[in-house]
Amino acid sequence: MLSETHRNITINHSTLNYTIWPGGKKIMLCFHGFGLDHTSFKIVWENLKETHTIYSFDLPYHGSSKFPRNEKSLRANDWLAFMNQFLTEEKIDCFEAMGYSMGGKYAMISAQLFPDRISHLHLIAPDGITTHFSYQFSTYPFLFRKLFKTQIKHPWFFKALVKTLSSLNIMNNYSLKFAESQMDTEFKRAQVYHSWVNLRHFLPQLNKLASQINERKTPVTFYLGKHDRVINAKEIQPLRTKIPHSRLTLMESGHARLLEAVAKSCHK
């Protein structure tokens, strides 16, 4: 029977939940993709439990974590407060970090904040390296943020945005369909709005991160799906080219099943 422990950290009316799956002595912190939760990494634990103990988080606006639904953006210093308390309470001195898609931002920022504690950075089709025009358009200008918020109950703005991006060939059809699938209910649209708007300034400092990694020779592995039409090799180049010793592993997978493919390869 799976033995797991659920815990949380509350700071300034925000609560970050995480689950612990016990195993080996190595520690891995896991950060899921959009629309998912901590359970995404159960398959990783199943393949690594002989060597690793997994700490899997419910990221802001996902799972059981509770964050204010306002216009305030989460900053790296906010995440530092959560991670400092987490590492202190769990008595963790050294850890690996694994981030999938949206969770890649959390993994990179955690590595950036704790350069002397990160022992291996695993980035699975990571978001946060390349900032897309559609993301900037929807989250940065105040007027467009207000328009974007109306789509929670009245999704006309999002549909118009999708049509515009399609006509201008700014996003490919697969990416547009993927985005639409994440916006087909009011709950999902609210989740998208707050995940984007409240994280609009939550991005790694690529030059600083790369410099820290290179100085310490911290292992970095990128995982991409050969059939992934959401995040491809071009998307990760701004960071990968700055880290000469990083590794790239290509999996026979698309975006949605990539985490599962990586997990199954872990024990090989």
Rank of each mutant, 00 (worst) to 15 (best):
T218W: 04
S175K: 13
F144Y: 10
E71M: 14
P219D: 01
R145A: 13
M183H: 14
Q112P: 06
H245I: 11
H267P: 02
T221C: 00
D78C: 09
V220D: 04
L258P: 14
P115F: 06
L161Y: 11
R75S: 14
F157G: 02
K149T: 15
Y61A: 03
L206Q: 06
K163V: 08
T88A: 15
G23R: 12
A111S: 15
F157H: 05
P60I: 12
M1D: 05
D127G: 11
S138W: 10
Q85S: 01
A233R: 00
R7V: 00
F137C: 08
S138D: 13
M183S: 13
E235I: 00
I243T: 06
T218N: 03
F148D: 15
V220N: 02
E252A: 15
F222A: 10
S181C: 12
S64M: 01
L176K: 08
S195P: 00
Q191R: 15
F144E: 03
D127K: 10
M28T: 14
K264G: 06
G128R: 02
Q191W: 11
N207Q: 04
L113W: 13
Y223R: 07
F82L: 01
A256M: 14
K149D: 15
A125H: 07
S253L: 03
L87E: 02
I213K: 00
P115K: 02
T51G: 04
T10C: 09
H201M: 00
A261I: 08
D37C: 04
R200A: 09
R247F: 04
G128W: 06
Y193M: 13
L161V: 13
K163E: 02
R117N: 12
I27A: 02
T131S: 14
W156F: 10
T164S: 04
R75M: 13
Q151C: 10
L29Y: 01
L147F: 14
P244G: 08
Y18C: 00
K177I: 07
H132I: 07
L258W: 14
L168F: 11
G63D: 02
L29P: 07
M98W: 11
E4Q: 10
H120W: 06
H227L: 12
K42H: 12
T185H: 01
K49V: 04
H255N: 00
L259R: 07
T130R: 04
K105S: 12
F31Q: 03
H245Q: 00
H62A: 05
